[in-house]
Nucleic acid binder design. Structure first.
Lengths: 351, 351
DNA sequence: GGTTAGCACTCTAGCAACACGAGTGCTAAT
DNA sequence: ATTAGCACTCGTGTTGCTAGAGTGCTAACC
């Protein structure tokens, strides 16, 4: 028997262990695997291979007389090398498509919220959507509305039905004409430029400007600094937290859920991880400790990016117990991400 | 011994039982109460009175040889009749005041969110804020911005830094002049009128209008119907859910937490209760089954309304186990509600 | 008559002892 | 290389027991 045959056998047994464990949530014994592989190998042989897998760090035993459970490393190997893509049933993908079709009439925030809801429901896990804000897209129009002597409502109309408005107190009172001039300047100068570059561009401008424009640039800077400061880079919609309780491990160890919820209570850390993942192409999976928080090691997420103009602008994810159906989760997030990408394009075309 | 003396003694024992139970979370025996009342009555006497309290439905025994636990009815009587007002320490109320002072520079949504956060932290429970939207206040200004041939950005500038914007597709393309005329009409007609009455008022107008205005009114109706339809009556910010896990009863019976979270996952029911409570003056307490959901009977909330122009426009609340420190919770919600009321006034003055 | 000491009673929490069963690792036979 | 057989390990669930907390009742007390 060649080396690759060995490899292959080890792999298929690891795969079988994971797949059984995912559905049963209790340690998997050699006999179960033997039966699952249609008796092609006896339990004793399976046990020998399991020892190898344990030595390689892919499996572990909760205690001597228990079956085996995948380690984080086992899941990782399974996901990277063994797991095949799964197609959603035409029924499911049809329903998803129709649902998203309906949702895209909503405003951006409500849309992302509901998409998150939907993903949570379809996966039976918690779900999240990392949605772009005005800071990640370009602005189509800037409007200034005086609301009192020294207060301006600054409205940024973005792509994709995104609208951001903010009341800003100006440094000095501005006349109607001054406001109009300022609005004109902002539109001429900044529309089309990525929001990220606005401040840098204006600051550069400030150095090389003649007197007549100086105040315009100065005021623009002041205004936009305030507007952009309060606007986050992206919005995170987490839904279906309740589903985290339904897993058997949650019932066995409620503190684990508690720790996760504590973690989610201030979602900055999670945000940071997602941001990091979205910097690179493709679907990402974080397993157990890879979530990077002491004590939160029983959970995983699967995250797929969605795009606008081929650039990644956000992502959708499923968050559940480490012991989750990664195949299905990946199929779902990728499909939903695809649908969201389509929505982004349609929003732009429609607006 | 007079009847009222009896009454008084029963009351003070019920009060003692509740206060001890709130801190210890385990059934309270007669000896403990006797000691708490400084030995003025022996355990045996306390027991006799406890039997009366049990017959009256204020206390119950988990089992024969356990101490007593307050019933919902017991809590209700305690809250309505026995509980004295509590003042926050000057230290605490000072910190609260300063914190709110800082927060009121934020936009309305962020402000309410953070107030909810703060209340959760101070109470050690979950907290919520029911915040008014544009539908509950009056609008100071209406602005229309064309974003494409048939799309209008409709911006409603409300009191209290509330701004709502919505992109609406018009029934037919409108010229710049038509948009300007529409905006002028809307401002003249609706500013100052409670948002609630807008549609009714316009519909009445539509019947009795001459030809030149007909289309203006028609368009206004169409526009505002869409804008107001998507805007909820109020927003509910729930924070500090994590705290619901820290109570000992949560550890003993995790399903109880689960059921509550399931309930909160779709907060429509909770919203409805709060709405109902806010229709009447004063601080409201909902105890156990009074939350109105089968299976969710171990939790309570304390809710205090805040006002603008003397009208109740929202409320702040603390949500925790039935066995919570109602005195402190009430002191907190009332104080915070007061601070929020002040913020509302200041927002109006400042804008 | 209200109050209280004394006491028998009840029930739970916690612990030890035990049997059971699942699953293992090893050995020897194939 | 594979596998049947078997002794071994260890967690789970059951039973039986004890200690302790708190009760209700009765009879004595003020």
């Amino acid at each position: 028997m060649s080396v690759t045959d060995f490899e292959q056998r080890r792999n298929s047994i690891l795969e079988a262990v994971i797949e059984v464990y995912v559905t049963t949530a209790s340690p998997v014994g050699s006999e179960l695997i033997s039966r699952k592989l249609r008796e092609s190998l006896s339990p004793a042989t399976i046990r020998n291979i399991m020892v190898e897998l344990e030595e390689a760090g892919f499996l572990e035993q909760p205690h001597t007389s228990a079956g085996r459970v995948p380690t984080d490393r086992g899941y990782r190997y399974y996901i990277n090398s063994l797991m095949e893509a799964m197609r959603l049933s035409t029924d499911e993908s049809g329903r998803l498509g129709e649902a998203v079709q309906l949702l895209q009439q909503l405003e951006a925030d409500a849309y992302f919220h509901r998409v998150s809801d939907m993903l949570s429901e379809m996966s039976g896990q918690a779900a999240f959507v990392m949605a772009p804000t005005i800071k990640r897209t370009t602005v189509k129009q800037i409007e200034l509305v005086p609301v009192s002597a020294r207060k301006l409502l600054c409205v940024l109309v973005g792509q994709e039905t995104l609208v951001v408005s903010h009341v800003v107190e100006t440094e000095e009172p501005l006349s109607r004409e001054e406001v109009a001039a300022l609005a004109h300047f902002l539109n001429a100068e900044l529309v089309g430029l990525p929001t990220q570059e606005w401040l840098v561009s204006l600051e550069r401008r400030l150095l090389a400007v003649n007197d007549s424009l100086y105040y315009l640039v100065k005021r623009s800077l002041h205004l936009l600094q305030i507007v952009l400061a309060t606007e986050p880079e992206e919005r995170l919609f987490i839904e279906g937290i309740f589903n985290l309780f339904t897993a058997p491990e949650a019932r066995r160890e409620p503190q684990k859920v508690q720790q996760l919820l504590y973690y989610l209570d201030s979602p900055e850390l999670l945000r940071e991880l997602i941001r990091e993942d979205l910097a690179r192409e493709g679907t990402h999976v974080r397993i157990g400790q890879e979530l990077g928080v002491e004590g939160v090691d029983e959970w995983s997420y699967v995250l797929s990016p969605f795009r606008h103009h081929h650039a990644i602008v956000g992502g959708v994810g499923v968050l559940g117990p480490k012991r989750m159906d990664y195949r299905r989760a990946r199929a779902l997030t990728e499909h939903v991400a695809q649908l969201v990408s389509t929505t982004m394009a349609r929003w732009e075309a429609g607006a």
